[in-house]
Design a protein around this nucleic acid. Structure first.
Length: 318
DNA sequence: AATCGGACCAACCGCGGACCG
DNA sequence: CCGGTCCGCGGTTGGTCCGAT
């Protein structure tokens, strides 16, 4: 990596050049320490103020980036596990390059980290896989598409490769009296995406457990991502079942609104994972608006609200 | 030992949205 | 409504590492 200038080096520079010019480039240990101390003492406020009050010759933006990507105490260091990797692939399939949203589901990981990981490692793997799979389509994300649903990720994770079969799968996997609209409509969870988004990969993400109208969530397994049952979820697993975080690594409480800057100091390192007990599909998506009810309009789904609803569900395995 | 090229990753850049006066 | 400011996000850049030649 780049060798950071020390503050003394910078002072020399400043004496020779512009005195007020903001510093750029790698952060020195001294700067890190200043920022860290300031953040620990005062918490996050205006980043411009942080930069100024911490005595850093940096713009607020730079401070924010350094804090989020490097200094934040709850960051998980080290390589991505295969489970992480798989989760990233799957989240990327559904979210696209929404790195911050992906990062929010990977505790301790930053959007930048995930983005870099994607661009360096995963992209390459997918590319290699594509070239080795001569029967696949030209779309990069279609690499592991087959015409059959598969279930190779552990119990309960059903990979639905053919979106025409999703409704069937949803119905078949549940004996309850679920919505008849599943019968009436070709079930396309992302109708707006079909043309400009790799739908096969999107459907690839659909854990059939979320299709279970009742009990599927509670009974569903998470494959490599742990288990819903009991309170230990996420503790043994590399994946704490992807509770939604904001990009500072704080758990977002969707009930009260997540971005609580004021209480930032108190939230650090509080991994308030909960076990999703009692959560049902209706709770996730809203009974009348999306999944059930007479007003369901399959062709008019709002992706954002869908993703938001999915994201707000703490234990969902896509 | 030198060099080259790919991989990795920290940090910057530019844009868009939110907010405020 | 408008302009300015700030923040956050995704894309990109460029320095360093490291293995291959």
């Amino acid at each position: 990596m780049r060798k950071p200038e020390t503050i003394m080096d910078k002072d020399k520079l400043n004496n020779n050049n512009t005195k007020n010019k903001l510093r750029k480039g790698l952060w020195s240990p001294e700067e890190d320490e200043r920022l860290m101390k300031y953040m620990m003492r005062n918490g996050q406020g205006s980043w411009s103020d942080v930069a100024r009050n911490a005595g850093l010759e940096r713009c607020g933006k730079s401070c924010r980036l350094r804090w989020i990507n490097y200094l934040r105490p709850d960051l998980k260091r080290g390589a991505f596990s295969p489970q992480d990797e798989d989760l990233i692939v799957r989240l990327h399939s559904i979210l696209g390059n929404k790195w911050s949203q992906i990062a929010a589901r990977l505790p301790g990981r930053t959007d930048n980290e995930i983005k870099n990981f994607w661009n360096s490692t995963i992209k390459k793997k997918l590319k290699n896989h594509n070239t080795s799979n001569s029967n696949s389509t030209s779309s990069p994300n279609n690499s592991d598409v087959s015409s059959e649903p598969r279930n190779d990720m552990g119990a309960g994770i059903m990979y639905v490769q053919d979106h025409e079969n999703i409704a069937t799968l949803c119905m078949d996997s549940s004996s309850s009296s679920s919505s008849s609209s599943f019968h009436a409509n070709r079930f396309n969870p992302f109708p707006l995406l079909e043309n400009n988004f790799d739908f096969m990969s999107t459907t690839d993400l659909f854990d059939f457990s979320i299709c279970l109208p009742q009990g599927g969530i509670r009974e569903g397994h998470l494959g490599d991502y742990g288990n819903f049952e009991g309170g230990g979820m996420g503790l043994e697993s590399d994946h704490p079942l992807v509770p939604l975080q904001d990009n500072r690594g704080f758990m977002v409480n969707n009930n009260i609104g997540g971005n609580d800057h004021e209480n930032f100091g108190n939230k650090i390192n509080t991994n308030n994972f909960h076990n999703g007990e009692g959560i049902q599909v209706e709770d996730m998506f809203g009974v009348g608006n999306h999944w059930q009810g007479e007003n369901l309009k399959m062709g008019e789904w709002d992706l954002e609200s869908l993703l938001e609803n999915v994201a707000s569900f703490p234990c969902i395995d896509f």
